[in-house]
Design a protein around this nucleic acid. Structure first.
Lengths: 159, 159
DNA sequence: CTAATAATTGACTAAAATAGTCGGTTAATG
DNA sequence: CATTAACCGACTATTTTAGTCAATTATTAG
C-alpha cells in the first residue's frame, strides 16, 4: 500500500474542480497555479482520471476539465484508485497467497486494515469535502492568491 | 505514507517471537525459515527493532531474540514505526505546511485518515494477534513445515 | 483562414526507496 | 577452539516517484 503525493495531488485537483464547478471547464493551468502542482504532472494524472470516467474534457480555448458526474457521487477512494495508488495493505492484493500459495501469518491483519481504510475513504465524497469549513477557508486563500497572480501577469503583458 | 513488505515483515517476525515465547531466545534463522523472510534482511530489521527497545538479544549458541516486554504491551503501530514506515498520510508529517508554509487544500482529510489508521493499529497488541484463531491456524501450519525442514536437514547431515 | 489555447500522447530522467546481498567482526558456549 | 548467532557496514538491482520535454490534435476567437 502507498499513499504519496500522486494520490494526494489527484484528490486535491478533483476537489479544485468541485469547488470551481458551474463556471464552465477549468484548465489544468488554473489548477496548477492554484494548487502548485506541476502542469505536466497534472496532465499525466488527468489522463488516468479521464480513462477512469471521473472527469470529461473540452479542448481548445476556454476548454479544460469538468467532473463527469455530481460531486456527491465521486468518492475519495475512487480518485486514489484511478491513479493506481492501491488502498490495499496486503502483499497479495487480498488474495491470501502471500506465503507460498497460502496466507501468511499476518494476512488477516492487513485485510482488516485495508477494510478500515477503504471504508473510511469510500465514505467521503467531493461534496462532503466542499462542505467542510477548513476546505472552504483554504480554498478562499488560494483563490485570492490566484487572482493576484493573474493580475500580475496582465501587468507584465502590457508592459 | 507507505506500508510495504518492510513493515509487514517486521510485524510478522515480532508475532513469530510472541508465538514462540517461553522456550528461550529465538534465532533469526528460525524466523527466516518459518516465515520465508531473507535472513540478511531480518538482521537489518531487528537492528532497528532492538534500537527501538522492542526486542532484546542473546549472542552465541542457543542465542537469538526475545520480546523486551510483555506481548500485551507491544502494539502493531510501534513495530511499523520502528522500521521507519510512517503511518502518517499527510505530505508534511502533519505539520500543516504542505502548501508554501500553509495547509494544502486536502491537509485535514489526510490528517483524519492518519488518525484513523493510527488508532486502528495502536489498538492491536501482539497478544491480541496471538489470540486470533486465524493466526493460530497459520502458525500451526508453519511450525509443522518448519519441523519437517529440520528433520530433512538432519538426514542430510548424517548422510 | 489563422493564431492562440488547451487537451493528448509518448518518451525520457533524476532521485529516492525497496528489498535485498555479501563479507567480515564480536561474543558466548560446549 | 570450533561453532553458533548476533552485529555491522557497504554495496546493488529494481522499482517507483515525481517530474520534464517535445510534438500532435482539436477548438475557437478574431
Amino acid at each position: 500500500m502507498r499513499l504519496t503525493t500522486k494520490g494526494r495531488y489527484a484528490v486535491t485537483a478533483m476537489l479544485d474542480l468541485a469547488l470551481h464547478e458551474g463556471r464552465g471547464p477549468i484548465s489544468l493551468a488554473d489548477i496548477s497555479s492554484r494548487q502548485r502542482i506541476s502542469l505536466s504532472y497534472l496532465e499525466q494524472l488527468f489522463a488516468k482520471l479521464r480513462r477512469n470516467g471521473l472527469v470529461k474534457s473540452v479542448r481548445g480555448p476556454g476548454g479544460g476539465y469538468q467532473l463527469s458526474r455530481d460531486k456527491a457521487q465521486i468518492f475519495v477512494v475512487q480518485v486514489i484508485d484511478a491513479v493506481n495508488e492501491s488502498v490495499d495493505a496486503t502483499g497479495c492484493n487480498s488474495k491470501g497467497d502471500c506465503h507460498e500459495g497460502d496466507a501468511c501469518l499476518t494476512h488477516h491483519l492487513w485485510c482488516d486494515l485495508s477494510e478500515q481504510i477503504h471504508s473510511f475513504l469510500s465514505g467521503i465524497s467531493l461534496e462532503d469535502l466542499v462542505a467542510r469549513k477548513d476546505v472552504q477557508a483554504v480554498s478562499q486563500r488560494l483563490d485570492q492568491q490566484h487572482l493576484k497572480t493573474i493580475d500580475f501577469q496582465k501587468i507584465e503583458a502590457t508592459a
